[in-house]
Nucleic acid binder design. Structure first.
Lengths: 249, 249
DNA sequence: ATAAAAAAAGCAAAAAACTGCAAAATAAAT
DNA sequence: ATTTATTTTGCAGTTTTTTGCTTTTTTTAT
């Protein structure tokens, strides 16, 4: 078997499965592992793939991982935010949660729209101050270093004194039976307070989070008035949510 | 399973849920928790995520890096901040005002110093959350678009409920006879409330502002306990302030 | 203050990578 | 066709990396 041929096979395997182990290739090609190792080393030098300990991975795989400086699934989150923006109307009073999806919503708020926005997220607040016609009110409290949001009893008390038309919230996990759940108990307390302060609650969540759950419960799925994912509202993945009194966008 | 695969999975989980715990990952990947710990440590070193006790959190959440553009007289403001830092001590409860000079103070707070910091400035809060041993409490309220600080009656009310050892404030204008003055009436109201909430008040001001005044008065010069400028404390420009009961640094 | 959980450090077994080398295959030259 | 040079391949020994386990220290929660 020619070297060229072997390397072609290795590349095929890598591109097909995104990753490959040297031992597997050696077996498939029936050559020594040293030969495979050398082939992979060459292909790596030619930038055809990326050699890693124990195997090789495709370039497409690696390039998408290096670009993780930006937000995960940004395009999908923007798609969600675009739908959410359609719910906003002049003179509205809304709450915007923390998290990257809500951050995209904040970004996409039209400059001319006259809004009163409550938030407890420092990054969201920073974004909102750049909107000329948006009044920004920050819910104070102790700032969580992880999430960069106000948390704790003071925050919850402050939330109890407001009342907004719409709140746009994210969640860690969402399931049609178990509702919205979180990893963090304190976060749950805050989100509960947010929902209590809202006439209507809009959940923004990428579809990957559907049908997942964790330890602490924020609310049942019926506490949500509108759920927005990046999917088409008719998508089958959303079927489980149709039984509930829930608008899907 | 290749190490790269594992790390990619970890990144996916983290970016999807913003936060994961090591034990969950270990179970998902069916590897020992030590391996997960090491992977997360690596990813943290590569700035792909942030490792926290018990798990990891997504970077999208963390420090949107408050890169200050060009700050006027930055070196002098840093000099002031360096002096101010010497007043801080472990376990202290302080307030940090908005403005570029106070921002430099926030930047220079040592990482190991254990502090409780109140602030009403979004940029200062953003900076402070990066300090591991600093508890950050944001005074909520309506956010002023120019100053990016909380203002208004709610802010003032929130301020009335706290009491700090030191407050570090800036001012628009300062004069030995007329005291601290501002161009903006609302700002004055907030600063008054800050001073009232502080056992001791430290004024940070570059010397260019000395002997200037404006329309609305924040307080007399005796309300200030310590004044810090970039000048040597013995500098003649400070002579007019020596009559007062005022420490000059 | 105490107990529980997590992190860090050290260690050893296993897997993988690297090295040099010799045999085999290929190509080139006479 | 035969010899020679070059490249390729497999092998053995050594080094490095990875991984899980145990013990100790640190952190967190009660």
């Amino acid at each position: 078997m020619l070297k060229e041929e072997r390397q072609r096979t290795i590349l095929n395997e890598v591109e097909l499965h995104n990753r490959v182990q040297l031992t597997d290739i050696a077996e498939i090609l029936d050559v020594s592992i040293d030969t495979v190792r050398r082939d992979v080393k060459e292909l790596d030098a030619e930038n055809k793939l990326r050699k890693v300990h124990g195997g090789a991975i495709s370039l497409g795989f690696i390039s998408s991982s290096t670009r993780s400086t930006s937000v995960y699934a940004l395009d999908r989150k923007i798609a969600i935010a675009e739908k959410a923006v359609t719910l906003l109307k002049d003179g509205g009073v809304i709450f915007i949660d923390g998290g990257t999806t809500c951050m995209e919503l904040a970004r996409l708020i039209p400059a001319q729209l006259q809004l009163t926005c409550f938030t407890l997220s420092l990054p969201v607040a920073m974004e909102l101050v750049s909107k000329p016609n948006t009044t920004v009110i920050f819910i104070g409290g102790e700032i969580s270093k992880d999430a960069q949001i106000s948390m704790g009893s003071s925050t919850i008390h402050n939330l109890s004194e407001i009342r907004v038309d719409y709140s746009f919230i994210g969640t860690g996990y969402v399931d049609s039976r178990y509702g919205l759940t979180e990893f963090d108990w304190d976060i749950v307390q805050v989100k509960k307070a947010v929902i209590k302060s809202s006439k209507k609650t809009v959940l923004l969540s990428i579809s990957e989070k559907l049908n997942s759950q964790h330890r602490y419960k924020t609310c049942d799925i019926n506490a949500i008035n509108t759920m927005i994912t990046e999917l088409d509202p008719e998508n089958n993945l959303l079927n489980l949510f149709r039984n509930h009194d829930l608008r899907i966008l």
